[in-house]
């Protein structure tokens, strides 16, 4: 049973790269264009982890993390931010919102898979 990762990013190319990387390593991946869509998807699908961007239209990454954590299906699902931002204050907010980790873009395939291996196995 492969693990399912929800990928939320408003950039189709970044999303595509992440999804391809994950699928290449045997994960299943579901895409969402923004935090709101991610939230909708996460209630209808069972996901093992979430990789999310911070800056997205409609609902940003922090907003998504808070809302997702508040729902029963969001408990214990690791959320990793993948963002161009590296502001420590923002990272702290993310942690407070329930994120387990923060990765800074640019996106690195090897790094992402390493993180996924440690986060979802």
């Amino acid at each position: 049973m492969s693990r399912t990762v929800l990928v939320a990013d408003d950039s189709p190319s970044v999303r595509r790269m992440i999804v391809l990387t994950l699928r290449g390593a045997g994960y299943a991946a579901i895409e969402a264009e923004n935090g709101q869509e991610a939230l909708d998807v996460a209630t209808t699908h069972s996901v093992d982890a979430v990789i999310t961007d911070q800056n997205m239209p409609r609902l940003d990454g922090l907003g998504f993390a808070r809302a997702f954590r508040a729902r029963p299906e969001g408990r214990g699902v690791p959320i990793v931010f993948l963002s161009t931002e590296s502001d420590p204050a923002l990272r702290e907010q993310a942690r407070a919102a329930g994120a387990i980790g923060w990765m800074v873009k640019p996106f690195d395939q090897a790094k992402l898979l390493d993180v996924m291996r440690r986060v979802v196995g």
Binding site: P78, G98, I100, V119
Partner: peptide, 9 residues
């Protein structure tokens, strides 16, 4: 665990 961390990993 609350954050979805997996100590066994």
């Amino acid at each position: 665990a609350a954050l979805g961390g997996r100590p066994e990993l």
